[in-house]
Design a protein around this nucleic acid. Structure first.
Length: 328
RNA sequence: CCGCCCUUAGCUCAGCCUGGUAGAGCAGUCGACUGUAGAUCGACUUGUCCCCCGUUCAAUUCGGGGAGGGCGGACCA
């Protein structure tokens, strides 16, 4: 697998392909970052971008994880004190999940976002941005129906972070794309350089396959879950025997979240998946890549129930180090 | 600063005018059917009715006060 392929593997979107190819030509020492609002316990959403960071490290990138305490504060996630406490725990869990400690720099947003120069740049960015544009950028991120002024500042700070952390690539889930597009427009206004962005897919809601697996509502899987809980959640997941389910009764597009978890969480981290299966149904199966597993589910050679139990085992193995760290 | 509206189940809301401790849809739980889930049937659960004071035999309901949220107006020398 060449560098470009590794870097863009499983990406939902890359902006722009040309800019990323340039980075891939000489990835050593290039810098990438993801920002997270500290939430204490890592869930699959965090782990999806973390997996991408691990792949970037394999490609030679230096990785910065922004523990965005100021952003969390602006998004009404609690007091600074509370937020910083959870940031510490989160950092430990990222390392437990597999981010290489020697190649990863953890930065607290408040370490630089309150500096005078940053603040003046922020005001400059505010001057360049209409309220409706900022609101649009925040639509996927904000909590609550009614946007606060703090939430209008939030995406502008993300734009500045790209400059102030001196990164070559901004990484995030697809829900960050409007913020990154705003950043690409805003940075040049302040005479800063535009950086490319890479977006990971968003895993569908486990129960329905519709929309995104939200941590706030519905079922999510985190390092806090016990093995039994994960088994139960995966077993309850929506899983028709196809990768491309029909829309639901309301015409909403549906995905197969079980396959998505294999594709985006398991196979990037695991060489071979063994599906244990009773002799009655044909005995064990082994998969070296996602495509074969998907094809077997599609053809009926792999029953969803067997796919689920193997998935639960794989997820449990991936989460185990973090779980131990959490219980330490 | 002024005015209006909202606050009831996890969510969206009805009920209040004409007081008797509450209902729908969705969600959820459990069964049946599928070797998973979903779909489809069948059953079931859910509440400090925002807080305080008052009237009353009795207040979610009426009156007063307060808190939180939303919307608008005014001011623009």
């Amino acid at each position: 697998m060449d560098a470009y392929e590794l870097i863009t593997r499983n990406a939902a979107e890359v902006v722009t392909e040309e800019e990323l190819r340039t980075l891939a030509d000489d990835p050593d020492g290039k810098r990438a970052y993801v920002g997270y609002e500290p939430s204490g316990v890592l869930h699959l959403g965090h782990m999806l971008t973390a997996t991408k960071l691990i792949e970037l490290q394999e490609a030679g990138f230096e990785v910065t994880v922004l523990l965005a305490d100021v952003h969390a504060y602006l998004n009404d996630k609690g007091s600074f004190e509370e937020i910083r406490e959870t940031a510490d725990r989160m950092q430990e869990q990222f390392i437990a999940y597999g981010l290489d400690e020697s190649q990863t720099e953890f930065v607290l947003g408040s370490e630089f976002q309150l500096d005078e120069e940053y603040t003046l740049d922020l005001h400059a960015a505010e001057l360049e941005t209409t309220l409706s544009r900022a609101k649009r950028a925040m639509a996927e991120i904000q909590r609550g129906d009614h946007a606060k002024v703090s939430q209008m500042v939030y995406p502008l700070m993300q734009a500045l972070d790209i400059e102030y952390l001196d990164v070559d690539l901004a990484v995030g889930g697809l829900d960050q794309r409007k913020v990154h597009m705003l950043a690409r427009e805003t940075l040049p206004e302040l005479d800063y350089e535009v950086r490319p962005a890479l977006h990971t897919p968003i895993i569908a809601d486990l129960d329905s396959g519709v929309g995104k697996m939200a941590s706030s509502s519905g079922v999510t899987i985190s390092m806090e879950d016990s093995e039994d809980e994960i088994e139960a959640k995966i077993n309850d997941a929506y899983c028709p025997p196809t990768a491309d389910p029909d829309p639901d009764g309301d015409g909403n597009e549906r995905e197969n979240p079980v396959l998505q978890l294999y594709q985006y969480h398991v196979f990037p981290r695991v060489e071979t998946v063994v599906v244990e299966r009773p002799e009655q149904y044909g005995g064990n199966l082994e998969y070296d890549d996602y495509e074969t597993l998907e094809a077997d589910l599609e053809s009926g050679d792999l029953h969803p129930m067997d796919a689920k139990s193997a998935l639960a085992a794989e997820l449990n193995a991936l989460i185990e180090p973090g779980r131990q760290q959490l219980n330490a």
